[in-house]
Write a protein that binds this DNA or RNA. Structure first.
Lengths: 210, 210
DNA sequence: CTAGATTCGGAACCGGAATTCAGGTTCATA
DNA sequence: TATGAACCTGAATTCCGGTTCCGAATCTAG
């Protein structure tokens, strides 16, 4: 029931240093180009030989898992910290925005978030749950205080963010999408935008985005 | 109407038959397992040798493009047909639901919809535009008649559907996500759920076309 | 029915990327 | 400092799936 993960196994000083270098290099590269990065490139960027990567990670898959794991860990951390924020609305907002802006920086993470979890990932499944729990806290509080529709849940948070993430591409502007979703998710007063419900005097159909 | 793409080039009878077989096989396989299907498997399922696939398509990429192209074509068709529906609300609803339920059946199509278009795809870009135009018609009409928020556009339709598609996975239930989005996108009455605000005519389990 | 062009089959070929491994090198302890 | 375990390197190897190639099989015009 304890130190199981990767950590403390008394590595030789240089070994640990190198392992970290690998993680950094891989993290950066994956974040930038997703999965299409080759082991050789990672090694190079870390200033090491490929063999070294394999001394620390069984295979590419494991390396990636380690990287993604970190991200999840960080997100769980973020969620926990947001759960401490006084105002429920602020807590929710900072979680939502914080999460998304973090995700925005990492292609590989995005891919991981959009694809069904690859089975053997179950140690990451842990982190996910931890994250989910914290999110739940924040969401529930926001619901209770009337910032979100009464039936909104942590699962919905995932749905909404996943949707937004799917629109983090060249053309599709995810903030717009988020707004669209929120103004339905947010409790009905929505001061954010001026979305007039009333009669619709002719609006010009040909109207480009912003 | 006009004969367009690759079609009628006077192929030997059996050749055309085989080509169709390839398209069917590939279509089914891609729809089921996305990109991780090998040429050999497609050939086998079509009851042909790999060589034959290459007689009809330059490479795997082209084959896939052909398949995806069909789907887009079909969607454009769907959109055009929905544009004919009398009631603007019904038109929008049937387009939205029709589109999504079609997409739901095809993994490869989903992937194509979520990933940035691979450059050389430009003949597909055509179909996309055609689709987009028809969607625009439907959407604009729905907006004018007050079924959708005034600033809703065809681009938003893409955002919303893409978001929904991203949630077409094992656990995440996309219908719920769609509801969440709609109740913000739809003009402000939304009584569907036990939301704290007032209510008006609903809109969730509507009828389906006529 | 026959010749010649088309099309088919599928084993062999290839390129690219992950993974291995046989030394050389570096750390840490006595 | 000396010594051996731990670690590193990177060329060689393995894997894997797309693509090619050409004799064999099939069509169709005449």
């Amino acid at each position: 029931m304890s130190g199981m993960a990767t950590a403390d196994t008394a590595l030789r000083a240089d070994a640990r240093r190198n392992r970290d270098a690998v993680i950094d290099a891989a993290g950066a590269l994956f974040a930038e180009r997703g999965d299409d990065v080759q082991m050789g490139e990672i090694a190079q960027r870390a200033g090491l030989g490929v063999g070294t990567l394999y001394r620390h990670f069984a295979d590419k898959q494991s390396l990636r898992a380690a990287i993604i794991g970190r991200r999840f860990e960080a997100m769980a951390e973020l969620a926990r910290s947001c759960a401490q924020v006084e105002d429920a609305g602020d807590a929710f907002e900072s979680l939502l925005l914080g999460y998304l802006s973090e995700v925005e920086k990492d292609v590989a993470f995005r891919v991981a978030l959009l694809s069904p979890t690859p089975a053997h990932w179950d140690d990451i499944e842990k982190q996910k749950e931890s994250f989910s729990a914290a999110v739940s806290e924040v969401v529930d509080r926001a619901v209770t205080e009337g910032h979100l529709r009464a039936d909104f849940t942590a699962a919905d948070f995932i749905l909404v963010t996943r949707g937004t993430i799917a629109n983090m591409t060249e053309e599709g502007d995810w903030r717009r999408h988020l707004t669209l979703q929120l103004e339905g998710a947010l409790t009905k007063d929505a001061p954010t935008k001026g979305a007039p419900t009333r009669g619709a005097p002719g609006q010009s159909p040909r109207d480009s985005g912003r």
